[in-house]
């Protein structure tokens, strides 16, 4: 554990809680891509199956349970409780275009051709692109609520902090996981355009809206 890893995890947690609270307080999931949330629930489910096979630490177990629980709670709020506010027409990204290639890649490029390892690899690859339906939705509607942009900022910041964590671990522990690193770089790059808009617009008190 190092400071980048810890702040990365807390940033991830902040993002998840911000989204849940936004939906709960406003009683609405307008502007939120249910498809991205389904992908994140799938990511956590396939990655954290090791909860059943190996114990790493209390911190690790508790955080995994919180992430999984919140992911399913979010999906429940969007597709069940506040279904009437869900903007399905603008959430038109085709999930199979992500899940199928990612599944194929996980079978081809992995550390070990075993069931759990392939699911872990699948989750790493899928997480790197899981935000695309949300970004696609924002590009379609041309705007995002400010609270939604805070969610995206913390979600992007988390993987960027993990990049520093991996640099740290490489130098001080000699540890590196090429699959996680490459996917993490891809994931962070996908947020760069958004980070720019966040800093230049949202942090200056303006709403995030894209030029028509």
């Amino acid at each position: 554990m190092n400071i980048f890893r810890l702040t990365g995890d807390l940033s991830h947690l902040a993002a998840i809680i911000i989204l849940l609270l936004k939906i709960w307080k406003t009683r609405s999931c307008a502007g939120i891509s249910g498809k991205s949330q389904i992908l994140f629930a799938l990511v956590f489910t396939t990655r954290y199956l090791d909860l059943l096979t190996s114990f790493i630490s209390f911190y690790n177990t508790i955080m995994k349970l919180i992430y999984i629980g919140c992911a399913y709670a979010t999906v429940y709020l969007i597709y069940m409780k506040f279904k009437a506010t869900y903007d399905g027409n603008h959430d038109s990204f085709r999930l199979e275009f992500l899940v199928v290639p990612v599944g194929g890649l996980a079978c081809l490029v992995n550390h070990d051709f075993s069931f759990l390892e392939i699911l872990w690899t699948f989750s790493i690859y899928l997480e790197s692109v899981a935000i695309l339906p949300q970004l696609f939705m924002i590009s379609k509607t041309g705007e995002a609520e400010t609270i939604t942009t805070h969610y995206l900022f913390f979600l992007g910041l988390y993987r960027a902090l993990y990049l520093f964590n991996w640099i740290w671990r490489f130098y001080f522990e000699g540890f590196f996981d090429m699959i996680a690193i490459v996917a993490g770089v891809v994931q962070t790059i996908l947020y760069c355009d958004f980070f720019y808009l966040y800093v230049t617009k949202v942090l200056k008190g303006k709403k995030l809206s894209l030029p028509a």
């Binding site: 990655r47 190996s54 995994k64 550390h111 070990d112």
Partner: peptide, 10 residues
């Protein structure tokens, strides 16, 4: 070959 328990990150 990776040790499966080495996935200690979240």
């Amino acid at each position: 070959k990776a040790d499966e328990t080495s996935h200690d990150e979240l």
